[in-house]
Design a binder for these strands. Structure first.
Lengths: 166, 166
DNA sequence: AGCTACTATATCGAATCGATATGATTGAAA
DNA sequence: TTTCAATCATATCGATTCGATATAGTAGCT
């Protein structure tokens, strides 16, 4: 998932490790550490998804550039249905959703809505069983309500996407 | 954080590893694996927070029991202000918030509200800078709105807690 | 009897975290 | 003008966690 995020950011231009880390933090996806960023860049390089510029920039920093292989990997990861659960991962996906075709976008969004609905149902069962405390119950109820709004948001995006199409 | 969750569940009665894993999954805190649960139980045992019953249960399973040390550790972890960020961690905290005193509860909730407000501001900056796509913008706006409702929820809990107290 | 599903404990390699080391640059106060 | 803290930048360390898998017993069905 960190790979997806890095590849996504590199579609906006070349960057170096520290800068990518800062952007990942700023975007608030999740708390990423350098211990994830640098090994991830090494893996991406080994996989041919990114290249390091021979000529370093004016400050002597390594610049990473997205390759065509890397772009193809990104598109494939953004459309992968097996990883649509995972909250942070979905945020990354949404950020770079414009790189997918309209069809794939709708498929991803629909899958997300489905997963959220399952979780809402699980929460409903959970709240019925919970006798722990008002806090425990309140937390589950609040979370269920929050996920319900997520579903509505995702479905509104699907509507926007499909209106105008046969 | 997995330690906190396990200790919390053990306040409700003795349990074995597999059962704890199942309950953690059911509660929907986050996706926990056996590779976290069993090592965590070993650490808790080494720290004296849990005991393994000498006499296994009717099915021959290891039963873990919370010790007084463990209960004290749990209370301390639930009240620790340095770990109030982290979404999953906060859910665990809310579930077992009844174990804290009224004062500590309010302190934890207030800290959470503060952290969420900071994140909302960061999201506002982020959405102003984002030109990526409608999806990227929509995601940030939706997240900010979601966190705003989280703040309102947390503040309503603080109100309930403080009303009636001088 | 055979089979599928579930219960239960546990470990493996890879990924990730949080902290830290190192050094260079920058900017502002002493 | 030096010095001192903060930030930039790359990188690694040990510990933790993940996802997958191994192993084996039990349940219930057909």
């Amino acid at each position: 998932m960190i790979e997806t995020a890095i590849l996504g950011l590199l579609t906006e231009g070349d960057a170096h490790g520290y800068g990518l880390h800062r952007r990942l933090i700023d975007m608030g996806f999740w708390r990423v550490s350098f211990g994830s960023v640098y090994p991830a860049l090494r893996r991406l390089k080994a996989a041919g998804a990114v290249e390091v510029s021979e000529t370093k920039d004016e400050k002597g920093r390594k610049q990473y550039r997205l390759t065509e292989t890397g772009r193809a990997m990104l598109i494939s990861q953004l459309g992968d249905m097996d990883t649509v659960d995972n909250t942070s991962g979905f945020r990354v996906r949404m950020t770079f959703l414009d790189l997918l075709s309209g069809q794939d976008r709708v498929a991803v969004l629909a899958k997300r809505a489905e997963i959220l609905k399952d979780r809402i149902n699980a929460a409903r069962v959970s709240v019925a069983e919970t006798t722990r405390s008002v806090y425990a119950r309140s937390e589950i109820e609040h979370r269920a309500a929050s996920m319900q709004r997520d579903v509505e948001w995702v479905e509104s995006l699907i509507m926007q996407e499909t209106k105008g199409t046969s």
